[in-house]
Amino acid sequence: MLHTVNKSPFEKNSLDTCLAHAKEGSAILLIEDGVYGALNGSKMTAQIQQAMEKFTLYALGPDLKARGIADKVIDGVKVIDYAGFVDLACENDKVQAWL
């Protein structure tokens, strides 16, 4: 399953709830304000790095760039574009949006 998270983890618990309910091996894509979760050196970084042992983390490049954090992404988070988002939605059997 592909999980999308569009909320900043500094403001909302969507990412936390997603991480608590996603099956091991799932793909998690950060979009919109969700991309702030991919910010390196933040208080969330350790949690994200830990999550990356269980899940594959992706972040939407256009959203990272728009927010000025494209060069501050945690190592190992895969940056993709909208075409990559479409591919992920196809490769996974369903998509769950954690709003």
Partner: peptide
């Protein structure tokens, strides 16, 4: 699409996703 235009990015994201999907032949 669950949010209105301009107030939230949802409609923009949905549009970009739709465009990318169509470009890929979906």
């Amino acid at each position: 699409v669950s949010e209105g235009p301009y107030n939230h990015q949802a409609s923009d994201s949905a549009y970009q996703f739709a465009k990318a999907a169509l470009e890929k032949g979906h």
